[in-house]
Amino acid sequence: MDITIHTSSLPHDDPDASLAFYRDVLGFEVRSDVGQGRMRWITVGPAGQPDTSILLAPPAADPGVTEDERRTITEMMAKGTYGWILLATPDLDATFEKVQAGDTEVVQEPIEQPYGIRDCAFRDPAGNLVRIQELR
């Protein structure tokens, strides 16, 4: 078997704000952008790595999601307990400075963790936790 992890998805609640974060702050390239209004599916990913993408998608777009479930999901996104992703970079400090300069909500400065890694964390505009760890 030859399987790659091709696309994983994160919810957005304001497509333009999420696009600005992943494109302008993290420096990802935009690979596709379909739909309109709040119903937009935007595929982004790091330049030079066409095999790995993040799909920024409207939450609870499946018609099988009930009104109550949709409300729960949007509330969890707002309170920051819903989506998260783990990214990595060889130069954590430079990355942290750049992302912080982009007026991003910081959750954790770069710190040495007891389980042997060094990482930092941010919120994306939709409330997803974006953790970035140092490659070493």
Binding site: T74, A78, K79, G80, E105, V106, R123, G127
Partner: peptide, 20 residues
């Protein structure tokens, strides 16, 4: 509902600030 989401986002910022 919009107000409730704005209030929750405010609480999230407090919690993140505690973490930081």
């Amino acid at each position: 509902q919009a107000q409730r989401l704005a209030d929750l986002a405010r609480l999230r910022r407090v919690r993140d600030r505690i973490d930081r």
